[in-house]
Structures are given as C-alpha cells and as structure tokens.
Amino acid sequence: MFVRTAGDRDLAAVRALLVETWHATYDAIYGAERVTEITNEWHSIASLKARLAKPNSEFLVADDGKRIGGMAFAEAVDGGGVVMLRQLYVLPSLQGRGIGGMLLDEIIESFPEAHRIRLEVEEKNTRAVAFYQANGFVQIGRTENCGSASSAIPALIYERVLAA
C-alpha cells in the first residue's frame, strides 16, 4: 500500500470502504439501520466530494494499485495550530497491517505548522481506542455529539502533542 492524495475517481471506492468499515465496526453498537442512516448522510459521494475541495485540509487514501484499503481526512483549525483528524478508516480485512499508521503519519506530515492533533472516537470502538493510544494519543475529554452538532453520538476526545 502507498498513501496518496484522494481524487474524484476515488470517491466511489472510498464510500464503499466507509460503508463496509462502519457496518463491521458499528452495527453491534448502533444497529445496522442507524449505521446505514449515518453512512448515507456522512459518507455520501457529495459529502466526500466536498471534502476534496475543503481549504486547509488533507484527504488521503491508501492504495495498492488494485483497491483502496484505507482513507484519512483531516483539517487545520485554530489558525493551523491544531489538526482535527475527522476520519481514519482501514478495511476490516486489512486492519493490523500498518496502513492506519501510514495514513496517520502522512496526515501529520501534511500539517507541519500544527502543534497537536485531535480526534473523536467512539468509546466502544476498542480497536480504534487502542490504536490511538498506541500512537501516543491521550484522552482529554468527551463529547455527546461526535461528528456533528446534533448527532447524539457520544465519543471520547483524544489528542497528541506533535514535535515542534
């Protein structure tokens, strides 16, 4: 797998990856119907396309030349001092092979002015929590509305200080 910037031609594959990964991860937590609602809203082609053009952001895919195995999206906030990691997903069949780490490293390198990187993660997503903790993130808080102001999805807020 190699990491590169996403383009329009990747959006259908990225959406398929997100739908598969969300169902594999969250069906047991929220139920398949709610996961379908969320993926239809948050991971529509139109939603993904809007991220491609968003200023001060980076949209990456992990690609082996045959398929997209992972994706990440982040944006600079607070004048560029903080990177908000909005998405980092790897196909369930490819998890544990270093793809998430590659995506995370490339996101961090894409924002050299940032002093810290922050994210929200579902507390019951124990694999993701363990991944972020293993990559130097510490919990700094919680939110009752992960992803959007009215999602009613609770999450932990994690942060990692970046080298100056």
Rank of each mutant, 00 (worst) to 15 (best):
A28G: 13
K124P: 00
L60I: 10
E33K: 13
F137V: 06
P112K: 10
E75T: 08
S110V: 03
S148I: 02
T36V: 12
L104T: 11
V35W: 06
E106P: 00
P55K: 08
W42A: 15
R34C: 00
P112R: 10
P112D: 07
N145A: 01
V14D: 00
A149Q: 06
M102G: 14
D8Y: 06
L52F: 10
L52D: 11
I108K: 12
G136Q: 08
V77E: 13
L103T: 11
W42H: 11
R86V: 11
R34T: 14
H43V: 02
I38Y: 07
A32I: 01
E58K: 14
R9F: 10
L85R: 04
C146M: 12
K124Y: 05
S44Y: 09
K66P: 00
V77A: 02
L103F: 05
R118D: 05
M102H: 11
L85S: 02
E20C: 04
G65F: 02
M1D: 07
W42S: 13
L18H: 02
R97M: 14
K66Q: 15
W22S: 12
V83W: 10
A13L: 06
W42E: 14
Y26F: 15
E75S: 09
G7Q: 13
Q139F: 00
S57F: 07
W22T: 06
G136I: 08
V3D: 04
S57L: 08
G100L: 08
R142M: 13
I108N: 01
Q95M: 13
R9V: 12
I29N: 12
T143E: 04
S148G: 05
I108C: 03
Q87D: 11
G81D: 15
L91W: 05
T143M: 03
A155T: 11
L88E: 06
E75C: 00
Y158E: 12
E122H: 14
I99S: 03
G141F: 14
L94C: 15
V138L: 04
R142Y: 09
E33V: 13
M102I: 00
P112T: 08
E58Y: 01
F111Q: 08
E33H: 05
V19D: 04
S47W: 01
A163I: 02
V121S: 09
S44D: 11
R51Y: 02
L52M: 12
G147S: 03
R15G: 01
L85G: 03
S150P: 00
L104N: 11
V3M: 02
F2D: 12
V82K: 14
E106W: 01
P154R: 05
